[in-house]
Amino acid sequence: MSAISVRGLRKSYGALEAVRGVDFEVQVGEVFGLLGPNGAGKTTTVEILEGYRKRDAGEVEVLGVDPARAGGAWRDRIGVVLQSSAMYQTLSVTEHLRLFAGYYSKPRPVDEVVELVGLGQKRDELVRRLSGGQRRRLDLGLALVGDPELIFLDEPTTGFDPHARRQAWETLRSLRSLGKTIVLTTHYLDEADRLCDRVAVLREGEIVAAGPPSQLSATLPATEIRYRENGREVVLETDAPTRVLNELTAKALAENRELEGLVVTRPTLEDVYLQLTGGEIDEEVG
């Protein structure tokens, strides 16, 4: 059963074609990632699915409803984390969650959400005293407090420190185990690699690759072996890493020599991404 279905989606801003003919499906219970550099059309696509923007062409169904014509009953079933946090500075964490809980027909208990997003220690702190990462976690809490079936996350961990990012990943995994459907956009390929069942890579408004992360990285065959020899870095690419590595180490052992800085890497989603998007990874934070 599909939670989201998108066919031939198009959207232009004046002369700029932000999204040009995008198709994809997201199944119920799936974690789906939209990847791509800035300006690739990720946010435009997600905001059309959330009901914020009107599309120029194509068919979109989210939870069986066209978001452009959806009302309160539909919004009751979705949760949203927008790209930038926006909240009342003068309310505390729990007050904020209680305010939003009141908008939904079957909210989760506020205390449970506070714990879920790891703000237990800050529950009575005013929003204006929270750090950027803590606000982002509250954002996630506000998206979850209505106990939605479907959750949209637009760059949910941008600006997190590595520890907070891992915590957020844990939260998202636990949501998935509850059977929630999650759509997230991200700059971080390790994030997509670890969280998403399937990803679609957007480039200039078109999907250039789609599938499970492991399947995408399998399209690049070579395993890379690196080590240093006499201060020089040696890089070998091979489809038979077991044999090559065995030969290398056997030789080194026989010569009583250490393979300095030995590293074996499988191609990652990052390599696929770089190849597909033709260049730089967005290092943008914020």
Binding site: E50, G51, Y52, R75, D76, I78, L82, A86, Y104, G146
Partner: peptide, 11 residues
């Protein structure tokens, strides 16, 4: 952006 966020709720 508060109004935009509110728009995603059933209010």
């Amino acid at each position: 952006g508060v109004l935009k966020r509110l728009r995603a709720t059933p209010l």
